[in-house]
Computed example of a mutant assay.
Amino acid sequence: MDYIAIIGDGFSVGSKGSGGDPDAWPSLIRPLLQRQGHVIQANTSAASTYGYIPRGPEGRKFHDIAPRVVGKNTDVVVLFGASRDKTMLPDGARLASLVSLTMQRVQHIAPDARLLVIGPAVMGPQPPDDVMQVRDIVREQALAYGATFVDPLAEGWFTSQELANDKGRPNPAGQILLAEKIAPLIAEQLAGAPAPPS
């Protein structure tokens, strides 16, 4: 059994607005990983109001969520998102410190876990400049902590609006695309994870 922790924003929720929805990518990756020989248990916390900085009264910071889903036995931690964290700009130093705090907390809880940082992601072929700035800050911090950083903006994951729902988040086809892209990334992290104690 491989243990995965997923913390995400609105791109990680399905039709019910939860990261645990059966049509959201955190659920859809299970059969894809099983085909590659990985039986996973995934603890997920995601919502459209989550980010390295919370949004609104229902918002939560990623670093506050981490202790809920990450444990000492976690093999891979996935952090996905941050597009709404552009509201912190132009205070990039403050954002960088909150991103750093998140990764520090994850490493404190699960020092042997691999850290996969994805995002931010937005719909459309032309990401706004402020989202690109957020991307640069998150990437810099991820690399500083030895994480694997994946850039949906540069890779053009969501250049087609056909993958968006009416709230500007991935529709069912978009969630399938995310699962197909993220499952191999998690498998790569698991392949490099330390073997469990005998």
Rank of each mutant, 00 (worst) to 15 (best):
Y3R: 15
I6M: 15
I7F: 09
G8Q: 03
S12D: 02
G17P: 04
S18E: 13
G19F: 11
G20S: 03
P22K: 14
P26A: 00
I29E: 01
P31C: 03
P31K: 02
L32V: 00
Q36G: 03
Q36K: 13
V39D: 11
I40E: 02
Y50N: 15
Y50F: 15
R55D: 08
E58G: 15
I65W: 11
V70L: 05
N73Y: 06
S83V: 09
K86D: 07
M88G: 08
L89N: 10
R94S: 13
L95W: 11
S97I: 05
L101S: 10
Q104E: 15
Q104T: 15
R105G: 01
V106W: 10
Q107F: 07
H108Y: 04
I109M: 04
A113Y: 09
L115K: 03
G119T: 01
A121G: 14
M123Q: 08
G124Q: 11
Q126C: 01
V131T: 10
M132S: 09
R135L: 11
A142W: 00
A147L: 06
A147Q: 05
F149P: 00
F149W: 15
L153Q: 07
F158P: 00
T159E: 04
T159K: 09
R169F: 14
P172N: 01
A173V: 08
A179E: 03
A179D: 03
E188L: 04
A191E: 09
G192L: 12
A193N: 11
P194T: 12
A195D: 13
